[in-house]
């Protein structure tokens, strides 16, 4: 559904690339996470893919359309949820959705249904300007589904939402996946990426470092750890030890043999830990 070959983009139109030589493919129905710290090139890549930024160098096709020569009908296939909410503040939630649905040439969803989905069912007649930041974010998210997109761009979809609402948003993304909607998710929240994505790509300083599924990445780069709490000389002690490292393995054995174990849990490496290990960079 999305093919990117040797994508380069420079805001100053010189050799200072915000994105350089990025290539990847996303299959139909896949949730692809594009992960990286702020300024890594996530939004630039998404901007080119969604037609907001002009394709300067490389080849990009989205839903079969060549992004070099964008046609308006391509946008019938695309939905986009922005990180920063951008709705008409002087219009109600329903008016916002009703207006946007008229700008597409395909069958659209009912605004009431979408508002219900994102937990704004009873707020349809309230002006968006009176919404909280989180509510506006949900309205922007709901708007991105108005045209039943087959390709869905989500930029930090759960940022600023409370855990319950974030869970609802994640459920919606899962449901859309079941309908074979292809999702391009940009985030620096590794937990969301871990939970939702079939594959993730790590981008740092405009370069795509690697692409794989979270499971494979954990197998390849992650170490399993054991968190042990035990009592030594009457004092409670907590240690986190690798199940791969020989020295740590011997230490685990020694603790089990000689001390009173209070708790013992195995723990997988997180995607964030893997990101740091692979790229040498944090996510902030």
């Amino acid at each position: 559904m999305i093919t990117v070959k040797n994508l380069h983009h420079s805001y100053s139109r010189d050799e200072k690339y915000a994105v350089k030589d990025v290539s990847f493919e996303i299959e139909k129905g896949e949730i692809f996470g594009f992960l990286g710290p702020s300024g890594a090139g996530k939004s630039t890549t998404q901007g080119v893919l969604s037609g907001l930024l002009q394709l300067q160098k490389g080849e990009v096709t989205v839903a079969g359309y060549n992004v070099k020569h964008i046609k308006n009908k391509m946008f019938n296939e695309i939905g986009m949820s922005f990180e920063i909410s951008n709705v008409y503040n002087k219009m109600t939630a329903k008016e916002n959705l009703n207006f946007y649905r008229k700008l597409f040439d395909v069958e659209t969803r009912e605004p009431e249904d979408l508002l219900e989905m994102v937990g704004l069912g009873d707020k349809g007649n309230i002006k968006a300007g009176d919404f909280s930041k989180g509510m506006k974010h949900r309205l922007t998210f709901a708007r991105s589904m108005i045209n039943n997109p087959s390709i869905w761009f989500l930029d930090e979809p759960t940022t600023g939402l409370d855990p319950a609402i974030a869970a609802t948003i994640k459920d919606i993304i899962w449901k859309e996946k079941k309908k074979e909607v292809t999702t391009f998710l940009t985030t620096h929240n590794m937990h969301i990426a871990d939970e939702l994505c079939d594959r993730v790509g790590f981008i740092v300083d405009g370069e795509l470092i690697l692409i794989d599924s979270p499971k494979n990445l954990k197998l390849q780069y992650g170490e399993k750890f054991v968190d042990i709490e035990f009592v030594k000389d009457g004092e409670p002690i907590k240690e986190s030890l690798s199940t791969i490292d020989d020295k740590d393995k011997a230490r685990i054995k020694n603790i089990i043999d000689n001390y009173e174990i209070q708790t013992m849990h195995t723990k997988e490496a997180t995607l964030e830990e893997i990101f740091i290990k692979v790229t040498g960079r944090g996510l902030v």
Partner: peptide, 14 residues
């Protein structure tokens, strides 16, 4: 400023 022009740009309207 409000980003509305971006939202319009990703619709099927010219």
């Amino acid at each position: 400023e409000q980003g509305i022009i971006k939202a319009y740009a990703v619709t099927a309207s010219a």
